[in-house]
């Protein structure tokens, strides 16, 4: 099951990994139906927290909404072609502390990212992970002089 129907010109794909909910497929179907009925293009979050994916010529960007999380409790990991964003949210209910673990995973195309140059920033409760593209993955502009 893939949520992101996106293919790079190189045939590589980014797609979130679904293993969490047995209803993920159904939920997606429902969301698609409702989304179509309401004329919305925004997909519903499936597990954990909403994630947006952007790209420009130089990099791919992942933006995750994680309000009220300590920077130290955010983990960004790239291993075996999977980018895992995990966070711990601590809520105080009276004297009891509740900890919720949140996580999302995205598959990153093998060899498309300069994995040693990945950076992340957390601002206003939104995490932005920047995945710089490898030189060969960047679109190249070639000017041809016509004689």
């Amino acid at each position: 099951m893939r949520l992101i129907h996106y293919t790079t010109p190189h045939g590589r794909t980014y797609s979130p990994v679904f293993a969490r909910s047995p209803w993920a497929g159904l939920e997606q179907q429902m969301d698609r139906l409702f989304g179509a009925a309401l004329g919305e293009s925004v997909a519903a979050p499936v597990a954990g927290f909403p994630v947006d994916l952007y790209e420009d010529a130089a990099a791919t960007y992942v933006r995750a909404e994680l309000p009220g999380v300590n920077r130290a409790d955010i983990g960004v990991e790239l291993a075996d072609g999977t980018l895992q964003i995990s966070a711990k949210r601590v809520r105080k209910v009276g004297d009891i502390e509740e900890t919720a673990a949140l996580s999302r995973a995205l598959t990153v195309p093998e060899g498309a990212v300069q994995s040693d140059k990945i950076s992340a920033a957390y601002e206003n409760g939104v995490l932005t992970v920047t995945l710089p593209k490898r030189e060969e993955a960047r679109p190249r502009k070639i000017s041809v002089t016509v004689a």
């Binding site: 996106y6 980014y14 925004v42 909403p50 947006d52 994916l53 952007y54 790209e55 420009d56 933006r63």
Partner: peptide, 10 residues
Amino acid sequence: AWKALHRESR
């Protein structure tokens, strides 16, 4: 310059 590939937030 950013192109949205996938959106879940509003």
